[in-house]
Design a protein around this nucleic acid. Structure first.
Lengths: 252, 252
DNA sequence: CGGGAGGTTGACAATCGTCAATCAGAGTGG
DNA sequence: CCACTCTGATTGACGATTGTCAACCTCCCG
């Protein structure tokens, strides 16, 4: 824990290690094993798909830069975004371990991912229990976020729902070392915000302006969000970060 | 796989074994290890809580009989049910491994559960990789169901939403060996259906009657559901069982 | 300068929630 | 056996949050 100097800074999997190390303490053997995972790095452009619903995948992947989303299409063509992923996150344990993809994963922005064979992930998980626990923990936290999203779209009004998403995003960005809590750039259009919150883009626009009018957020450009009073925004968003299962120090 | 005669029929954990065996093939050592998990059986009455949001739990539990739900309370007191659990299901890997519960688990009916210390579950998972894989797989399927629920609540209209839930329930009951696909008893009130689908009880009632009026379901009593034409109900419910990740044979 | 994507706004419609009354069935005590 | 009570189901009238449609605006980029 204290010898934070990493030897293998050369591996592209550094962001994954950071993430796993966040959930469980890994010794140097664990870390080496993670960084030694065979993988190929791939640059992907916005709107390209990592996995399509129905695919049979046998690889997992880790976000190295950029953002991606998971989504489902319902009858009638409407789309629901069920998760947003950022640097370091394990994007597809989910689909790959289950065999046939029950949802699609799409790049939200340009970015790079590392592709890892599923079998290698599986092997590592059981050869190095610390790593396995971290990965398991990671999937459990993902599940926790899904649950919060169910509650968010199911039982909160649109204003609260949006504010909640803005809070979650802010905090996750901060934890991932990608931004401040006071200001960040949304990587998504209002239509995509709508698909994530079960609203329409028109209503997202109105709600966003509503939050702005009430001084809860500032927007120097449509996508850049400033949060003046975190407490107040969290309160209107009914945002309690417990479900993110962060370490104590992050919740200051 | 072929020698299906179980020796330890005495263990209360039989339903858990059935479930895990569904996800991965377990050899006889694996099975014995599962059944040998230390546990205490507890009878719980309807509306009693297994875990409350905010609790620090160090035990997991398995449903032996009856039904339970996971739910979250949002600002204003509204409730969202995020999962329904039935016999054999591992109800609380989720909360217990994560430390502090991000949601409550409540009995929907009278029933019995087996309480297992978290550490024992953890130990078993890594001592017997087959079992560990089955448990991991189980949590991934749970997550998949959460994703479907996000889509259900976020992007489907109330009629479709309800029909979807009825289909999911029917199929899961069948797989758990608890009923037929053509007829079953709902273990929940309309208010609870509402909390699961993000609706109000009044609207659940109307939608249910709507489905009935259109001949999609029959109801001899308010809670007993008959499904005449599965295809038609599945179609109006936009129900595609992929997300349940069942074995081929179950999807006939 | 033209085209396109995304953001903004208004008028209108509708799904769904709220409130409140009534009904039906199960369990209880007399 | 019957009133009484409680929970859950059902129904109607009404209101409002949110969706739909469509126009227009703004910025970016070739």
């Amino acid at each position: 824990m204290t010898d934070t100097l990493e030897k293998q800074t050369s591996s592209a999997l550094q962001p994954m290690l950071r993430k796993l190390g966040y959930w469980a303490s890994l010794d140097s053997d664990d870390r080496e094993a993670v960084l030694a995972l065979p993988h190929t790095v791939k640059a992907l452009s916005r709107n390209s798909y990592i996995v399509r619903e129905g695919d049979r995948t046998s690889t997992s992947c880790v976000m190295l830069s950029g953002y991606s989303i998971r989504h489902k299409i319902v009858a009638g063509g409407a789309r629901q975004i069920v998760a947003i992923h950022m640097k370091g996150e394990l994007v597809d344990l989910q689909n790959s371990l289950l065999g046939v993809a029950d949802h699609s994963v799409e790049m939200l922005t340009d970015g790079r991912v590392a592709i890892i064979p599923r079998d290698e992930v599986n092997r590592l998980a059981f050869e190095r229990p610390n790593v396995g626990k971290a990965m398991w923990f990671d999937t459990l936290v993902d599940a926790s976020i899904f649950r919060e999203w169910v509650a968010n779209v199911g039982r909160r009004d649109s204003r609260t729902r949006l504010a909640h998403l803005l809070c979650e995003f802010a905090l996750r960005l901060k934890v991932a070392g990608l931004g401040e809590e006071t200001h960040y750039e949304l990587p998504m259009t209002q239509e995509q915000l709508a698909d994530a919150t079960g609203m329409t883009s028109v209503h997202v626009n109105r709600s966003l302006k509503g939050l702005e009018a009430d001084g809860l957020i500032g927007r120097s450009t449509p996508r850049s969000i400033q949060i003046g009073d975190w407490r107040r925004l969290a309160s209107t968003g009914d945002f309690n970060p417990t479900y993110l299962h962060l370490n104590e120090r992050e919740l200051a």
